[in-house]
């Protein structure tokens, strides 16, 4: 009786069963795994929007506007200059706001401060806000994402 041969035959069967079972599990789980991950929605990239009206944005004020699916922020400085930035705080994704009393941009979530160039000046935000280009046509404020 060649027991060594017997064991290896048994081992071979076990290996076959094990790998088939493994493959079945993988075959069942892979679609689930892919299903859970949401499909990429091809969004027409918005590069230029009408963000607001000059007449509705007095000096020392700000306004959130829609830039595609994301919020942007328009700021009018004390001196009357209009600037636009991404409205999404670089810390943990809150939406920022203009604080007339500080005369700069502020994030309520963890007390983050940005100056009027969008630079992070105080609190936890690690990076400046993305800056957009502003064009004023008559009373209309257009914002363009820099290329």
């Amino acid at each position: 009786m060649d027991t060594g041969n017997k064991i290896s035959r048994k081992g071979f069967i076990n290996w076959l069963l094990g790998t088939s079972l493994g493959a079945t599990v993988v075959a069942a789980l892979y679609p689930v795994f892919r299903y859970v991950l949401p499909p990429e929605v091809a969004e027409a990239p918005t590069n230029r929007v009408l963000a607001g009206k000059l007449s509705e944005l007095p000096p020392n004020s700000g306004k959130i506007f829609r830039f595609g699916a994301k919020p942007g922020i328009l700021v009018r400085t004390q001196g009357g200059e209009v600037r636009a930035f991404s409205g999404i705080c670089t810390h943990l994704n809150c939406t920022v706001q203009y604080r007339a009393d500080f005369q700069h941009i502020w994030c309520a979530c963890h007390n983050g401060h940005y100056d009027l160039q969008g630079k992070n000046i105080q609190g936890p935000p690690p990076r400046p806000l993305e800056t957009y280009k502003v064009d004023i046509v008559g009373d209309d404020i257009y914002v363009t994402r820099g290329a």
């Binding site: 959130i64 506007f65 829609r66 919020p71 922020i73 409205g87 809150c94 939406t95 920022v96 706001q97 994030c107 309520a108 979530c109 963890h110």
Partner: peptide
């Protein structure tokens, strides 16, 4: 409102406060 700024005084439930 996804297009409103985060309100002042925002904070999580008490059991997340220490991390916050």
């Amino acid at each position: 409102d996804p297009f409103a700024p985060a309100p002042a005084g925002i904070k999580p439930e008490w059991y997340f406060l220490f991390m916050f």
